[in-house]
């Protein structure tokens, strides 16, 4: 993954950029860089999880936005009840402490992934793509119908989740929180990819039949990977909700799932830093194109087609070599 000298160099530059972005933003007098960087870090976190499925295990999940959105809604709903001083489903109170809300977002997203994965992984290939898409759309319709929590219009809340030592109003501090979370998730991916579990996942991608032949139940490993990726997406969703102080069904929309898949492939499928590059490319492209013309999709669409047809190694492969 990160082996040659060139790959080490590119990786080091990326981590440095991540650490020095706020300094760079004030140096260049471009304060927008902070929010762009935060968005990149959050998308990258979700994409690392999806990369474990698509890149490592060979599972093209088209419903990753479901877990992203669930994580976001955990933050939004708990903040809503905390502000109203009412109870969630009449059972437990709302919450605004990050130490309570974020782990809860991860756990709920992971549980949903466990459930959806248990059903979806009975199929393979195109059916798997479609059934993950369908489950995600089901959750999308569900949240769009929940009028209590804003329905189609989404749900705003006043203040970010409270963290010790960090002011909820400080955007630079929040950027560092997201960047640190990204580094943690990357380290986790690195460890998982090198572990026995990661080896099995790669074996499943290469040949599921071979894994069965050496006596491994691939279903359990795939389900574990799916659950893990869902939890990571939940974390990303919780951060996204905090960044915008707003959640809406759009977070669960199927185009969001498509965007995550694009980021995986654009960055470099199965590579450690690919998701960071993919997320950065996507966010920067969207921002720049949108400044240039309101019809930016007319460039984005064909660009995407060209990337898929021509640039198969992704950005990591182009920058760091194979």
């Amino acid at each position: 993954m990160v082996e040659t000298a060139r790959q080490r160099l590119v990786a080091a530059i990326l981590v440095l950029l991540l650490a020095a972005l706020p300094a760079l933003a004030s140096l260049l007098a471009m304060p927008d860089l902070i929010s762009l960087g935060t968005q990149v870090a959050i998308y990258a976190i979700a994409t690392v999880g999806l990369n474990l499925l698509i890149g490592t295990t060979g599972l093209p999940s088209f419903g990753h936005a479901a877990f992203f959105g669930l994580g976001g809604y955990v933050v939004g709903i708990l903040a809503f009840h905390a502000a109203e001083d009412s109870a969630v489903f009449g059972l437990f109170p709302g919450a605004t402490d990050a130490w309570i809300v974020w782990p809860l977002a991860i756990i709920i997203a992971a549980l949903a992934a466990l459930l959806i994965g248990a059903l979806s992984l009975r199929t393979a290939g195109v059916s798997f793509i479609m059934i993950t898409l369908a489950f995600a759309q089901m959750l999308f319709y569900l949240f769009a119908a929940l009028k209590t929590y804003g329905g189609d219009d989404g749900l705003g809340f006043r203040r970010r989740n409270a963290l010790p030592w960090v002011s909820p109003r400080d955007d630079v501090a929040f950027y560092y929180v997201c960047a640190a979370a990204l580094l943690l998730v990357l380290a986790g991916f690195h460890l998982v990819a090198r572990s026995r579990f990661g080896n099995v996942l790669q074996g499943i991608r290469q040949s599921e039949r071979r894994m069965a032949a050496i006596g491994l139940r691939s279903y359990r490993y795939k389900l574990a990977a799916f659950t893990l990726a869902g939890g990571v997406a939940g974390l990303a969703g919780a951060l996204q909700a905090n960044m915008l102080r707003f959640v809406s069904p759009d977070m669960l929309h199927w185009t969001t799932s498509g965007d995550f898949m694009v980021m995986v492939v654009l960055g470099g499928t199965g590579t450690l830093f690919g998701p960071v590059l993919g997320a950065a490319a996507m966010v920067l492209l969207q921002t720049w194109l949108a400044q240039w013309t309101e019809h930016w999709m007319i460039v984005m669409g064909p660009l995407l087609v060209a990337v898929i047809l021509l640039a198969r190694r992704g950005l990591w492969g182009a920058l760091a070599g194979k």
Partner: peptide, 9 residues
């Protein structure tokens, strides 16, 4: 899926 997703956009 991804290339035809681009076509939709």
């Amino acid at each position: 899926v991804l290339a035809t997703f681009g076509l939709i956009l």
